[in-house]
Amino acid sequence: MKKVRGTVIIKDDSCKGCAFCVEFCPTDALHLSDRYNAKGYRLPELLDPEKCTGCGLCGLYCPDFAIHGYIIKKVA
Protein backbone atom coordinates (compact mmCIF):
# COMPACT_ATOMS: atom_id res chain seq x y z
CA MET A 1 0.00 0.00 0.00
CA LYS A 2 1.15 3.49 -0.82
CA LYS A 3 1.94 5.82 1.98
CA VAL A 4 0.63 9.31 1.46
CA ARG A 5 2.31 12.47 2.65
CA GLY A 6 0.46 15.70 2.89
CA THR A 7 0.48 19.08 4.48
CA VAL A 8 -1.83 21.89 5.48
CA ILE A 9 -1.98 25.59 4.78
CA ILE A 10 -3.36 27.82 7.50
CA LYS A 11 -4.54 31.36 6.94
CA ASP A 12 -3.81 32.88 10.30
CA ASP A 13 -6.03 35.90 9.79
CA SER A 14 -9.12 33.85 8.98
CA CYS A 15 -8.89 31.42 11.89
CA LYS A 16 -11.34 31.83 14.77
CA GLY A 17 -9.79 29.15 16.93
CA CYS A 18 -12.70 26.70 17.03
CA ALA A 19 -10.29 23.73 16.95
CA PHE A 20 -12.57 21.58 14.79
CA CYS A 21 -9.55 20.80 12.61
CA VAL A 22 -7.45 19.66 15.54
CA GLU A 23 -10.18 17.58 17.12
CA PHE A 24 -11.26 15.73 14.01
CA CYS A 25 -7.94 15.23 12.24
CA PRO A 26 -8.00 11.48 11.55
CA THR A 27 -4.27 11.07 12.15
CA ASP A 28 -3.89 13.54 15.03
CA ALA A 29 -1.40 15.51 12.99
CA LEU A 30 -2.61 18.91 14.23
CA HIS A 31 -2.55 20.58 17.60
CA LEU A 32 -3.31 24.01 19.01
CA SER A 33 -0.10 25.99 19.01
CA ASP A 34 1.03 28.73 21.33
CA ARG A 35 0.51 31.28 18.60
CA TYR A 36 -2.42 33.67 18.49
CA ASN A 37 -3.60 35.80 15.59
CA ALA A 38 -4.29 39.52 15.70
CA LYS A 39 -7.84 38.93 16.90
CA GLY A 40 -6.63 36.78 19.75
CA TYR A 41 -7.64 33.41 18.40
CA ARG A 42 -5.33 30.51 19.16
CA LEU A 43 -4.03 28.99 15.95
CA PRO A 44 -3.66 25.35 15.00
CA GLU A 45 -0.46 24.01 13.53
CA LEU A 46 0.87 20.83 12.05
CA LEU A 47 2.40 19.02 15.01
CA ASP A 48 3.79 16.08 13.15
CA PRO A 49 4.23 16.54 9.40
CA GLU A 50 4.93 12.82 9.11
CA LYS A 51 1.39 12.08 10.20
CA CYS A 52 -0.43 14.35 7.74
CA THR A 53 -1.87 12.41 4.83
CA GLY A 54 -3.24 15.49 3.08
CA CYS A 55 -6.74 14.06 3.35
CA GLY A 56 -8.18 17.56 3.59
CA LEU A 57 -10.71 16.74 6.26
CA CYS A 58 -9.54 19.77 8.27
CA GLY A 59 -10.54 21.96 5.33
CA LEU A 60 -13.94 20.34 5.13
CA TYR A 61 -14.53 21.02 8.82
CA CYS A 62 -13.10 24.51 9.03
CA PRO A 63 -16.05 26.93 9.28
CA ASP A 64 -13.78 29.88 8.55
CA PHE A 65 -12.13 28.58 5.37
CA ALA A 66 -8.83 29.08 7.21
CA ILE A 67 -7.16 25.70 6.78
CA HIS A 68 -6.92 23.15 4.05
CA GLY A 69 -4.79 20.14 3.46
CA TYR A 70 -3.47 18.54 0.34
CA ILE A 71 -1.28 15.70 -0.76
CA ILE A 72 2.31 16.53 -1.54
CA LYS A 73 3.66 13.14 -2.48
CA LYS A 74 2.97 9.47 -2.53
CA VAL A 75 5.74 7.12 -1.50
CA ALA A 76 5.66 3.41 -2.11
Partner: peptide, 17 residues
Protein backbone atom coordinates in the same frame (compact mmCIF):
# COMPACT_ATOMS: atom_id res chain seq x y z
CA UNK B 1 -14.46 37.51 3.70
CA UNK B 2 -14.20 37.27 6.66
CA UNK B 3 -17.79 36.18 7.09
CA UNK B 4 -20.04 37.24 9.95
CA UNK B 5 -20.38 33.84 11.62
CA UNK B 6 -19.19 33.35 15.19
CA UNK B 7 -16.24 31.17 16.25
CA UNK B 8 -17.44 27.57 16.44
CA UNK B 9 -20.56 28.16 14.36
CA UNK B 10 -21.18 25.30 11.96
CA UNK B 11 -22.59 27.21 9.01
CA UNK B 12 -19.18 27.63 7.39
CA UNK B 13 -18.64 23.89 7.69
CA UNK B 14 -21.84 23.25 5.76
CA UNK B 15 -20.63 25.67 3.09
CA UNK B 16 -17.47 23.58 2.65
CA UNK B 17 -19.64 20.51 2.16
Amino acid sequence: MPHIWCPGCGIGTTVNC
